[in-house]
Design a protein around this nucleic acid. Sequence first.
DNA 1: ATTGATTTAATTGTATACAATTTTATAATC
DNA 2: GATTATAAAATTGTATACAATTAAATCAAT
Lengths: 231, 231
Amino acid sequence: MKGEKKTQDDRVYEHIFDAILEQRLAPGTKLNEESLGEIFGVSRTIIRRALARLGHEQVVVIRPNRGAVVASPSIEEARQIVFARRIVEKAVTELVCERAEAEQVEQLKQMVRDEQACFDRGDQGAGLRLSGEFHLRLAEMAKNPPLLSFQRSLVSLCSLIIAQYEKSEAKSHCSYDEHFELIDAFAQRDKDKAVALMMHHLDHIEHKLDLGDETDSHDLKAIFSNVIGHK
Amino acid sequence: MKGEKKTQDDRVYEHIFDAILEQRLAPGTKLNEESLGEIFGVSRTIIRRALARLGHEQVVVIRPNRGAVVASPSIEEARQIVFARRIVEKAVTELVCERAEAEQVEQLKQMVRDEQACFDRGDQGAGLRLSGEFHLRLAEMAKNPPLLSFQRSLVSLCSLIIAQYEKSEAKSHCSYDEHFELIDAFAQRDKDKAVALMMHHLDHIEHKLDLGDETDSHDLKAIFSNVIGHK
DNA sequence: ATTGATTTAATTGTATACAATTTTATAATC
DNA sequence: GATTATAAAATTGTATACAATTAAATCAAT
């Protein structure tokens, strides 16, 4: 849309960001600077900038002297991220109700139709990405750049959380029907209804997750708490 | 507190961040990479990383091929920033009410006493910084890293907004008394009272600003709207 | 076979060199 | 004198070289 020329590190950033939204990049994956440089045909300088940006969005964890890895939020962190997202989505939903124009509503509908088409044809990756982009588009429509920037971080982090904690039996379920309901509420400018729908939407996402117990997958004591004595 | 060793770009970042909180760096100031490199005794590589981080927090605007400048939010942007901050501060306030321990409350009181001492001795810069750090400390106490990261961005942006739009007659007024009241509400774990106080606190900050009209200082037509004919 | 120490390789951190671009200064034209 | 064109200087963008650090591989000892 905008006539801004993308810099090279933007390009790299977007590719990695998309790969995370599409769950092609699993949590914990090591992001080697030289390998990425070869893949994208640029020097480490550019890769480093892109990784630093992802690092600031907390989607990538930068460990000094030990390189970057795709974040793998703990259960505690996952709860904090979802909590933050509730706050942002509530504000965004209210703003969208106030501001949404007919043309934009139609554009949203088209996005969700595309999302539906992806899932129908079995392209889950693209479907997941469009689902995330739907929420980012809402934040754009809220016309609040700081909120949008924060939402970018939260949406990609949620994608990682889903990749890590989605219950196997919930994997087929998709969310585009709830997106359509939301759009109707926007069109009616029904703020209360839209916020309620959005909260339910996040509830559904959260309930598909296995955030039940506190077991940290690196806490050996907790993992082997079933081993009672020394026999 | 934590035993993490700071990297060089962290050091540069913090110095610039503090200078903005203390209003020693005015909105619009050009941030020349080589000059900063000489000042901090590091190469442009390090400076660039620090500027990129500030850029992601939107405190600094990075214009491709044209370098970095300290952000100078328009009135419209200022409104969006304050709006976002209300949302975050509300959530933070509620979390602090739930979580605040006696020891932390005492620590907060000490911070505000320090803030008061700065203003009393006429060190407005340090006072402003401590005022901002008070709000950052609250976000830390909320134990939600994504919210804290967002708050960092919003607090520094608000500092720039105040630097740009504070009414000259309001400059003497300080906010530490309201900080003390907030702390009392935290100690009583009175969520409703604390949120109300925080919103009033932000109201006061906002009312000290000259965000009255929409005049964009770069919109020449608006600026010279008083010139009627061609005479 | 496991553990521990030592060496080697791989990876990240930083400075610097050079290319691309923008800004400033100078000259030319009307 | 103001405006445009050209040249010089300054600044940013990117790649690369080398240093510092971490990860791995090898070997020795138990």
